[in-house]
Every structure is written in structure tokens, then in C-alpha cells.
């Protein structure tokens, strides 16, 4: 997986973008390919290990891993690469990761620990994994031909 944690570089790249003439109807250079697997725990020789299986069967409580494979198929770097993934309603995020999350339907993003949600009593409370509505990855740039996977784990509610 390519690095996608260099968030600080994003601002610099935005400022440093060259003022090339606008190009219209440029073919899409980046492709996204989604996949999902079910995470199963297998005990072998007394050790538990996780396997990723085809989701032939999905039940409440199952843990899923959603993967998006991205690739810059163009011959130039792309910048300010932001991938947004609304969580399907039937799942809840099961762990945080190298991504930002939103608990307000994608209006605002941040680390989960910094976000607030509204509790059953109508008062603000610390946001929890189950509150997450969107996850978002930000990569400063993708070199031509470069590719990688971004993933999140979620549990079927």
C-alpha cells in the first residue's frame, strides 16, 4: 500500500499547483475498484488468525473489510486525491484507521476522538464507531502508474 498519511503535504501541493491552461474533457486518469471480503477467525495450532473470504454468507455481527484499489492510469501525477466512502447503513465501522471519519453525514471530517455526536438524551457526547457515516482518505499525489489499496473494517449491524 502506498503512503497516504502525508496530510500536511496536501496544502503545500495545493499552493504549488502549476497554473497550466485549463484542459477540458480530460479522460479520467484514476480508476477505483471496490471489493469486499468477510473476515473470519480461524484457530490453527492454538493460534487465532484471520482469513479474508468471499462474502458468500453475511450475517449480523460479521466483520467485513471494504477495499478500494486505486490506480493512476494516466501518464501524469494527480494531486489532491480524496476518496470518500459513505458507510452502507447496515454496517458500522469496527475500527479506526489511516483515514478521517465523519459522524454528520459527510459535512465535517476528523479523527473520531475529536468528533461529537448527539446522545439519546439530546446532549452532545463523544462520537463512537457506530456514529460514523463516512470515511475519507486524502493523498497528496499519485504518481503515474502508481496504485494502492485503501481499506476499512466494518461490522454488520
Amino acid at each position: 500500500m502506498t503512503s497516504h498519511s502525508n496530510l500536511a503535504a496536501v496544502a503545500a501541493l495545493v499552493l504549488g499547483t502549476s497554473l497550466a491552461a485549463p484542459v477540458l474533457a480530460q479522460p479520467t486518469a484514476v480508476t477505483l475498484e471496490g471489493d469486499v471480503k468477510v473476515v473470519h477467525e480461524v484457530v490453527e495450532n492454538g493460534k487465532t488468525r484471520e482469513t479474508l473470504d468471499e462474502p458468500n454468507q453475511v450475517l449480523p455481527g460479521d466483520r467485513l473489510v471494504f477495499t478500494t484499489h486505486y490506480r493512476n492510469a494516466g501518464d501524469k501525477p494527480v494531486t489532491d486525491f480524496v476518496v470518500t466512502n459513505p458507510l452502507p447503513a447496515p454496517v458500522k465501522l469496527s475500527q479506526t484507521g489511516a483515514f478521517e471519519v465523519s459522524v454528520d453525514g459527510g459535512k465535517s471530517y476528523g479523527p473520531l476522538a475529536a468528533l461529537k455526536a448527539t446522545g439519546a438524551d439530546g446532549k452532545p457526547r463523544a462520537a463512537e464507531l457506530g456514529d460514523v457515516t463516512h470515511v475519507r482518505w486524502r493523498l497528496a499525489s499519485i504518481a503515474p502508474g502508481a496504485s494502492g489499496d485503501i481499506t476499512y473494517f466494518a461490522e454488520v449491524r
Binding site: A20, G34, V83
Partner: peptide, 14 residues
């Protein structure tokens, strides 16, 4: 359970 990711990026200043 349907999952779709979408991306925005800048290429050729667009």
C-alpha cells in the same frame, strides 16, 4: 449492503 467509494483529484489543473 452496498459500498461505493468516490474520489476527487486534480489532474492537469482540473
Amino acid at each position: 449492503i452496498e459500498n461505493t467509494a468516490s474520489a476527487t483529484y486534480t489532474a492537469n489543473a482540473a
